[in-house]
Amino acid sequence: MIHWQDLHHSELSVTALYALLKLRCAVFVVEQQCPYQDVDGDDLVGDNRHILGWHNDELVAYARILKSEDELEPVVIGRVIVSEALRGAKLGEQLMTRTLASCVNHWPEKAFYLGAQAHLQSFYARFGFTPVTGVYDEDGIPHIGMAREPGQA
């Protein structure tokens, strides 16, 4: 059983913030062997939101939603992650469903964008995202820009 939270950054407890940074580091930096500056200053600003999935008091799924102050810019979904221990349990689908529901609830008129790892393009396509860039290198990992227009179900 997963306990889900959809939190504005101001609602994050110190424990939740520590857990999300720990999970992101474990997967994106250590597991994927990709040293990069994960703590980028965007986690605790503006109207940004965090989707957290907890199992037995451990954070096992997470996504970050960034809302630009520029009304012409899309909402950016990033740091989409499922812990290695629960991959294959369809948790990614639940995470993206909840993340998109949060986006639509808070910003129904906005387009959404994500920089997907290229091998996950078909996964995000199932949620209405289409490629808007070619494949590009980000920190040594092939990525592709994908967008979803407002009003898509």
Results as ranks from 00 to 15, higher is better:
residue 71 E to I: 13
residue 103 C to V: 03
residue 146 M to I: 03
residue 130 T to H: 01
residue 57 D to F: 08
residue 71 E to P: 11
residue 145 G to H: 00
residue 152 Q to S: 10
residue 117 Q to P: 02
residue 121 Q to R: 01
residue 5 Q to Y: 14
residue 126 R to E: 10
residue 53 G to K: 00
residue 89 A to M: 13
residue 55 H to S: 09
residue 44 L to G: 09
residue 11 E to K: 11
residue 62 Y to T: 04
residue 29 V to G: 11
residue 86 L to H: 11
residue 108 P to D: 07
residue 92 G to Y: 04
residue 64 R to P: 04
residue 23 L to F: 05
residue 119 H to S: 03
residue 24 R to M: 02
residue 96 M to N: 01
residue 98 R to L: 08
residue 46 G to K: 06
residue 96 M to A: 05
residue 38 D to M: 06
residue 20 L to K: 02
residue 96 M to C: 04
residue 25 C to M: 10
residue 103 C to R: 03
residue 131 P to F: 06
residue 95 L to H: 00
residue 129 F to R: 03
residue 121 Q to S: 06
residue 44 L to P: 08
residue 16 A to K: 09
residue 31 E to P: 12
residue 144 I to V: 15
residue 107 W to P: 08
residue 7 L to S: 10
residue 93 E to V: 15
residue 105 N to T: 13
residue 113 Y to T: 02
residue 98 R to P: 03
residue 76 V to D: 04
residue 30 V to P: 13
residue 151 G to F: 10
residue 36 Y to D: 06
residue 143 H to S: 01
residue 134 G to L: 00
residue 76 V to G: 02
residue 105 N to H: 12
residue 120 L to C: 03
residue 36 Y to F: 09
residue 126 R to I: 06
residue 25 C to D: 10
residue 53 G to F: 05
residue 135 V to T: 13
residue 120 L to F: 04
residue 26 A to T: 12
residue 120 L to H: 07
residue 5 Q to R: 15
residue 90 K to M: 08
residue 111 A to D: 00
residue 30 V to T: 13
residue 3 H to A: 15
residue 68 S to C: 12
residue 17 L to A: 15
residue 106 H to E: 12
residue 40 D to V: 07
residue 76 V to R: 13
residue 110 K to L: 07
residue 19 A to N: 04
residue 78 G to C: 09
residue 78 G to W: 04
residue 145 G to M: 01
residue 88 G to K: 05
residue 34 C to K: 00
residue 113 Y to C: 08
residue 144 I to Q: 03
residue 66 L to M: 13
residue 98 R to V: 07
residue 27 V to S: 09
residue 42 D to A: 14
residue 143 H to P: 02
residue 58 E to V: 08
residue 29 V to R: 06
residue 54 W to M: 06
residue 16 A to D: 13
residue 86 L to A: 03
residue 21 L to A: 11
residue 44 L to D: 08
residue 40 D to L: 04
residue 41 G to V: 06
residue 18 Y to N: 13
residue 15 T to F: 15
residue 100 L to Y: 01
residue 72 L to H: 15
residue 123 F to H: 02
residue 98 R to W: 09
residue 84 E to C: 12
residue 55 H to F: 12
residue 106 H to D: 13
residue 113 Y to R: 08
residue 108 P to W: 09
residue 35 P to K: 00
residue 2 I to H: 09
residue 143 H to C: 00
residue 128 G to L: 03
residue 7 L to T: 04
residue 82 V to T: 03
residue 54 W to R: 06
residue 123 F to L: 04
residue 140 G to A: 08
residue 77 I to Y: 00
residue 18 Y to C: 12
residue 42 D to G: 11
residue 95 L to K: 04
residue 124 Y to L: 05
residue 5 Q to N: 14
residue 9 H to N: 10
residue 39 V to E: 12
residue 121 Q to E: 03
residue 153 A to L: 15
residue 74 P to K: 03
residue 65 I to T: 05
residue 115 G to A: 15
residue 131 P to T: 05
residue 151 G to M: 09
residue 72 L to F: 14
residue 51 I to S: 03
residue 34 C to R: 02
residue 88 G to Q: 13
residue 31 E to H: 14
residue 85 A to C: 11
residue 153 A to I: 14
residue 131 P to H: 01
residue 37 Q to M: 11
